[in-house]
């Protein structure tokens, strides 16, 4: 197979984005706001109110160290790609529990009950625990993480998540030595989630990670985005985000996390075993049995861009898969 070449003009040279970061660091709040406006206007779809709201969320002196602050302090990811608009992120959702129509999800999920909500963490752990959602938010300091999200369908977004490393929670429950995988489960609530009444899929939604993937610093449990609490269509009140894997791995509205010895079978693996594997790492060189993964469409842009290996997080995560055949382990 022919490797896809990223045109050199499309790569932001390191010195340029380093300079860009320095520029961002040094710039005052006022000027920062106007940069944000320009970027958001370029994305389209945001009115003046939204721009005002966005500018209001800028920290006084935005710096890289400010990632702890629960507000959208940056306008781009580390590659210089602009954030996707709040409107797009909250109106274009793959959440089959509500609907297979991405634009219908937000409306159908509007009255979804978010409180009370608990997350039960158990299985092969020494310290099983049930967390109340407010507890979870308070106990683990929320950080902002700007990640690219690449859907297996070939579109992508850049999202400023709020959340905390899953590893912090797992360390607290103390996995036993036999625990090799983590299994996640979405709430089962067919009265509120019309899609779950469709017997075609083996509900509830289940996903899984290898323990080392789960402990990786990039893997977070998210409770918000754009400095606000998550909306139901984005997987409120708490969801997984694994930025180097296809979006369906990032399971939403989690109620149960179990440490287990055997590799869990995800809903997609059960529904179409030849098409969806356990790993689902973003990889332009491993086509999905039905469609190519070489390119993607960034929401807000026309045309296509090349898909990056591990969604651009190769440096951070490639070591997890050293010596593994990524074609066999799709």
């Amino acid at each position: 197979m022919q490797m896809i070449k990223i045109r050199s003009s499309e790569i932001t040279p390191e010195h340029v984005y380093r300079a860009r970061r320095k520029f961002m660091k040094g710039i005052g709040a006022l000027a920062f706001g106007s940069v944000a406006s320009a970027v958001l206007t370029a994305c389209g779809g945001l009115g003046q109110d939204d721009l005002g709201r966005f500018a209001a969320m800028q920290p006084e002196t935005p710096t890289e160290g400010d990632a702890q602050q629960p507000s959208a302090g940056q306008t781009a990811d580390e590659l210089g790609d602009a954030l996707t608009s709040f409107e797009a992120i909250t109106t274009y959702n793959n959440f089959y529990e509500f609907s297979m129509n991405k634009e219908a999800v937000a409306r159908l999920a509007r009255d979804f009950t978010l409180s009370p909500w608990t997350v039960t963490v158990g299985g092969l752990v020494n310290n099983p625990k049930t967390y109340d959602i407010d507890d979870l938010r308070k106990r683990f300091p929320q950080q902002e993480r700007i990640y690219r999200l690449r859907c297996v369908e070939g579109w992508s977004m850049v999202i400023p998540w709020l959340g905390f490393p899953l590893g912090a929670l797992l360390r607290e429950v103390d996995p036993q030595s036999g625990a090799k995988y983590v299994r996640f489960e979405t709430v089962m609530r067919p009265q509120e989630m019309p899609g779950q009444r469709d017997p075609y899929f083996p509900w509830p939604y289940v996903e899984g990670l290898r323990l080392d993937e789960a402990m990786h610093d990039l893997t977070i449990l998210s409770t918000g985005l754009y400095g606000k609490q998550l909306l139901p269509q984005n997987g409120a009140p708490v969801r997984l985000v694994v930025p180097w894997k296809y979006g369906f791995k990032s399971i939403k509205s989690i109620v149960k996390i179990d440490l287990v010895a055997e590799q869990p079978t995800s809903l997609w693996m059960a529904s179409a075993p030849h098409e969806y594997g356990f790993y689902a790492n973003v990889n332009p060189d491993v086509p999905h049995p039905r469609w190519s993964q070489a390119t993607e469409r960034r929401i807000g842009e026309l045309g296509r861009r090349p898909t990056l290996k591990f969604n651009g997080y190769e440096e951070e995560v490639a070591a997890l898969y050293a010596g593994m055949d990524l074609r066999a382990n799709y």
Binding site: Q2, I4, P287, R290, W291, S292, A294, T295, R297, G303, R304
Partner: peptide, 16 residues
Amino acid sequence: DFGLDWGLIQREIVEK
């Protein structure tokens, strides 16, 4: 969608 990028289109046709 593909901006008449025949290289990309050819790859899509072969893979999909």
